[in-house]
Amino acid sequence: MNGFDWDWQFTFEVMPTILEAAKVTLLATLLGSCLAIVVGLSFALLRRSGFFLVRSITYWIVEFVRSTPLLVQIFFLYYVMPEFGISMSPLLTGVLALGLHYGAYLSEVFRSGIDGVEKGQWEASRALNLSVFDTYKDIVLPQALRPMIPATGNYIIAMFKETPQLSAITLLEMLQVAKIIGSENFRYLEPFTLVGVLYLLFSLIAAYGIHCVERRFPKEGITLK
């Protein structure tokens, strides 16, 4: 050690700027989660399609998205979309990448949740002459929801922890702001440590929140409106 001490004054100086950037991080996570849930559910239902081709194409898309790096996908959207005349802000690009990447992961969660509903429920719905749509909406999804909560929550936390990668396309989220502060002041210790601690704190709170939601969630499922 060469006597490098923690500077509390500097810490409090940079805290407001970093907390301001935390809003961007949280916004990206929130929007990304919503998109991921929609994408995940769509993929999950496509994986159950009656057409072999639809099933297998969906499988390979999911496999491809899951096994390539999020960072490259972010770059891909950032560089390639303008080629096709679509230009988006870094935030929107980031949300799209997060939503796609984690949608692929969530589709597996949703799929096994749906598969976990007893076969008898499908048979009973068929016997009552419910349409496929009504069967999903009123019978299958309400029962599948509770077992999906922990894994879904964990992936959303994982997504939250990967938002720093959006700094690579100049989004001013926490890590990027910390890096800028660091290079301006030649002091990286406080900003980076602060960001790390904030991430740890948010993750722990979120994990506790998911645990509570799961516990409170009625065991018999809920009725979807």
Binding site: M1, N2, F4, K161, E162, P164, Q165, S167, L175, K179, G182, R187, Y188, L189, F192, T193, V195, G196, Y199, L200, S203, L204
Partner: peptide, 23 residues
């Protein structure tokens, strides 16, 4: 818990940018 609770990128930056200040 520390390495699972924060993200790999933050850990990478910490090791690359902060640890040099500790020698």
């Amino acid at each position: 818990e520390f390495f699972r609770g924060t993200s790999a990128l933050i850990q990478l930056y910490w090791i690359y940018f902060v640890l040099p200040f500790f020698g």
